[in-house]
Amino acid sequence: MKFRIVVLFSVAIILFAACSKSHKAKIVESGNIVLNFNHKIVNKPIWYDTLIYVNEAGNPYLINEIQYFISEVALFDQNGDSVAINQWKDIHYVDTDIKTTWRWEVFDKIPARTYNMIKFTFGLNEEKNQSYRFVNPPENNMFWPEYLGGGYHYLKLNGKWLPEGEEREMPFDFHLGIGQIYEDDTTYSDTTYDIPAIKEFVHNYFTVELDQKQFTINRNESTKVEIVMNVERWFTGPNVFNFDVWKGYIMQNQQAMEIARENGHNVFTIGEIE
C-alpha cells in the first residue's frame, strides 16, 4: 500500500513538473529611441557612382561608398543631464552598402523626457580602438594596418575625383583612423610599407554634438531620430579640402587627416524626428 502511494506521488510530481511555458510581463518605465542614418549631399540623397558633384575646392567627385563607426552616444536634456547609450552596445557601424546598418534600434530604455542634444564620438577612442576587437565582417574589414597604428578605420569615404587638367578621374580613399608622425616629419600620399620610423601616433577621433533639434521620448513609445551625414561638408568648413593638393590617399598623412577631423565636427545634423 505504501509503495503504491509513493508511485502515485511520483507520477503526480512528474505531471506537475510538465507545466507550460510562460512569458513574464515586462514593466517598462521609459521609451525607446531608434537612430536612422542618412547620407546626403547638399540636402539631397546621394547618387552613388555618378560624377555629378563638385566640392568647395572645385574638384568634381563621385561617391562609391561610406563606412564609419560612431560610439559613446549620449542624449542630453535641457538640464544638462545625460543618458549614455551603452547597455547593450556602445559602438555602431554604418555602411551605405548594407541597409540594415542604417537603422540602430537602441536596446537601452531611455527615460521619458525631452532631449535637446545628441552627442557621440566619431570613430573609436583609444580604449575602444583595439585591434581584433571585431572578428566578423563587415566591421572587421575596417581594420587599420598594425604598422600604421592598428585598430580600425573611423571612416572610409571612397570615391573618385577628376584632377585638374586630367580627363580621367582618379580614386580617392578619404579614410580616417590613427595618424602617424614620422621621424623625418614628412607625409606620405601613397600607401607604402617602406616607411621610416614613426615617432608618434595621433588618435583622430572627435566628438560631434547635434543640437539643431530637440525631441521627446515618450513613455512606452519609440521615437525615431534621423542623423544625416552631409558628405560635402567633409571637404569644407572650416578647411577647404582639395584633392589636387592632398591626393587620394591620406592614411599616412596626418595633416590631411587633421583637416578632415576639423571639418568632421560640422558634417552631421539631425534630420526628421518621428
Binding site: 511555458k21 510562460s22 512569458h23 513574464k24 515586462k26 547593450w88 552596445k89 540594415t100 546598418t101 536596446f107
Partner: peptide, 17 residues
C-alpha cells in the same frame, strides 16, 4: 533581435526547455 540580427530587447522566460 531585429532583421539585422541586432539585439533590441530582452525578456526573461519561465520554464524554458
Amino acid at each position: 533581435t531585429n532583421d539585422a540580427g541586432e539585439v533590441v530587447d530582452e525578456e526573461i522566460i519561465e520554464n524554458d526547455a
